[in-house]
Amino acid sequence: MAHIHLEDGSFTLFWVIVWWVLALAITGAAIYLLRSAKKADSRRITLAAFCTAAAFAVFQVSIPIAGGVHMSLTPLIGILTGPVYGSLIVLIINILSAAIGHGGWGMIGANMLVNVSEVFVAYAVWRALRTIVPDLFSRAGIATLAGLLCGNIVMIVIILVSGVQGVTQTPGQVLAGLSIIAAINMGIAVIEALMTGLVVSYIGRLRPDLLEGERK
């Protein structure tokens, strides 16, 4: 999991707008791709709806490990629905999360970029390893770890580029602190990788047609 747990006002308005514009550009591209498809994939839309509900719920559950963390399920979203639906799902999750006070409104754009990177990388690794790692559990686990590592890197880059208002920390100190957060997040990513691996291997046994890249 990677999520920028800073409140509104931490970034300047300029950077809030920059991250929002980038996030909306991705959203626009995703909507354009969906609308340009000849026929809507009703099965995947249903899957996307289930993923949205499940991921939103998981997002809000604080797991009492290392002082309290939460998972995101973004790699599972990427594997099950692909990057186009996944981009829209993470936007909805971040808006709903902000609506109940989990992350600021101004952080939605930045957090969507973090989560989209997780979805994209997990999906790409999942597809790329198809012939190299046929075992669904291992492939989903590796894709999850890669996606969440990327999400943590994007999170650090966004915070370092934006800067945090009203603090005296040097960029080096912020980088060191965020690196610690990323390291702990990767420990939680192990749990998420095991969970994603189990879910994907279970779906793969029962309904392999539901897995992105496994459809015959």
Binding site: L6, G9, S10, T12, L13, G104, W105, V164, V167, L178
Partner: peptide, 25 residues
């Protein structure tokens, strides 16, 4: 953890700053 990493301090962790171009919700 975030407050410590970014230097916002434990008391500011849930409130953010209020710089000239910032805003508070």
């Amino acid at each position: 953890r975030f407050a410590s990493a970014t230097g916002t301090g434990p008391h500011d962790a849930g409130e953010g700053g209020s710089g000239a171009a910032g805003f508070t919700l």
